[in-house]
């Protein structure tokens, strides 16, 4: 038995909205690899979802829904480029940045949560000092130069303390030796 997407999603919009929230941002980023203008990227992804919703009761998706969305967005992007390029042929402009950009685009998208997980894993594989620097910058918003300055100070202070401690220790030892 084949089950249509509409049956899976149900009549109410909640699950569709969940799907949208999950894949809308990564699909927009994906589209931006083809098309330079961010607002047309968003427009294309909106169109892809609108098409999906309009024919949800008629389509049966055999592969993953994510891949289906990616290929819909890709096709819409290519259509858009084709339309613009034929337009450009008349306008006689040079090939634009987005055309040059579209040579190779990997067909994989990840949701925000998935990327966050991947990022966390990558940080885990490094010494803790990297995580500290990354988090100071990304979470606390401290610039890298500022972090460097702070660490320099702390290093220098530490060095000074160490020297000071050494000296006083030496002096004390001398005193004892006398």
């Amino acid at each position: 038995m084949k089950i249509s997407l509409g049956y899976i999603l149900g009549e109410d919009e909640t699950s569709f909205k969940g799907l949208f929230n999950l894949y809308y941002p990564p699909l927009c980023v994906y589209a931006s690899r083809y098309i330079g203008d961010p607002s047309s990227c968003e427009d294309i992804v909106q169109e892809a979802f609108a098409q999906l919703w309009a024919k949800k009761d008629r389509i049966v998706i055999t592969g993953s829904l994510k891949n289906y969305l990616v290929s819909t967005v890709r096709n819409l992007c290519i259509d858009c480029l084709r339309k613009n390029s034929s337009h450009m042929r008349y306008v006689k402009t040079l090939p634009s940045a987005e055309e040059a950009r579209s040579d190779y685009v990997p067909d994989e998208i990840y949701s925000k949560a998935e990327i966050e997980k991947m990022l966390d894993k990558a940080l885990d594989s490094l010494p803790d000092s990297y995580r500290m620097v990354f988090e100071m910058n990304r979470i606390e918003g401290i610039s890298y130069d500022e972090i460097a300055r702070m660490m320099n100070i702390s290093v220098r202070t530490a060095k000074r303390y160490k020297e000071h401690a050494q000296k006083s220790l030496e002096n004390k030892l001398k005193d004892i030796g006398k």
Partner: peptide, 30 residues
């Protein structure tokens, strides 16, 4: 590894610039 982390981070940054709620409204309009 740092390169991987920064590219993932930039991807997240780009996604967070996108207004999903507004996008949903527009899509439903379509």
């Amino acid at each position: 590894k740092v390169r991987e982390i920064t590219s993932l981070d930039m991807e997240l940054e780009r996604m967070s610039e996108i207004d999903t709620a507004r996008g949903y409204e527009r899509m439903m309009g379509k």
